[in-house]
Amino acid sequence: MHAQAVPDVPSEAVPPMLSVRDLRTYYRANRLGIKREVKAVDGISLTVRRGEIYGLAGESGSGKSTLLNCVAGAIRPPMEIVGGDIDFAFLSGYGGLHRAPPAEVARVRWRHLSYIMQGSMNVLNPLRRLRSVFVDFAYPHVGGTRQQFERQLHAHLARLNLDRSVLSAYPHELSGGMRQRATVALATVCRPDLIIADEPTTALDVLVQKEVLGMIRGIQREMGSSVLLVTHDMGVHAHVSDRLGIMYAGHLVEEAGTAEIFRNPLHPYTKHLISSLPRIGDDAPRCGLGGAPPNLADPPLGCRFHPRCPLAMKVCSGEAPAMLETAPGHRVACFAYNQSGGA
């Protein structure tokens, strides 16, 4: 079902919507003469194709939010991009939004690239009615008269099944779910090519979560946009992502179509993520993963997962496994599979 929704083979003629190549982003802190370098994202390559929802899963500290900020061009000290390139279909040649000239960034923002954040309150100014928020964010990118914009806005809200009365409301007058729906509407009103969504439903109740996810997916399918969706919740990924990347401690450890990941997880960490979650109706005892996520200021040598890995071999503590393809479209970084001529 997933595989059919998107063209499986990226054609050479059409560049991907987003491609990240060997991105390294470190946090460099210098407090009281002690230098600390936290390698939050350490050599990640991935591509987001046109018209797909690419999901990034991982725990806190795995670097998924850092990666997202890099893509969005929100680089501020102590965060630093040490190496790698980020190219968009609509903005390439600069190596990332953070290196593009301001005029280009302004051209691209909202029109081509927009965001859905976790806390809708951060986007929606509490002192302004939603109509003003829409005008502030989107109107400069749309052009035309205010009446045209208003008409466009109404059509867009109607498409999302939102009542236009929300435009006259202040953010605090709306429930959390309604607010998040409004931010989805805000992010999609300019029909952007790429939408970045950071934990868009984490703060919501389960009943509302499902609806907001359905809304994101529905509007994405209709507009043919690409979405880079970051959440730690595997359930959310199972529902909306077309392809899935699993991150652990600053590395991408596995990548495949969502169905493939759930049917045939290869990396021991992915296996654990999928098998450990309790399910209603399943009484089998499960156990958590031992150990703690590594300290990224001083990560373990070799594969960063090896201290917690049930399959750890000698080689795992010596060198880091590369991302290799085991089947078409399925990449994994683990010595248990296909590394350097083995297996």
Binding site: G214, R217, A238, T258, A259, F262, R279, I280
Partner: peptide
């Protein structure tokens, strides 16, 4: 409840909203 399975994934999220 969103299960981390494909059994009830994707298909039952209403694409028309």
């Amino acid at each position: 409840v969103l299960l981390p399975d494909l059994a009830n994934a994707a298909a039952d999220v209403p694409i028309s909203m």
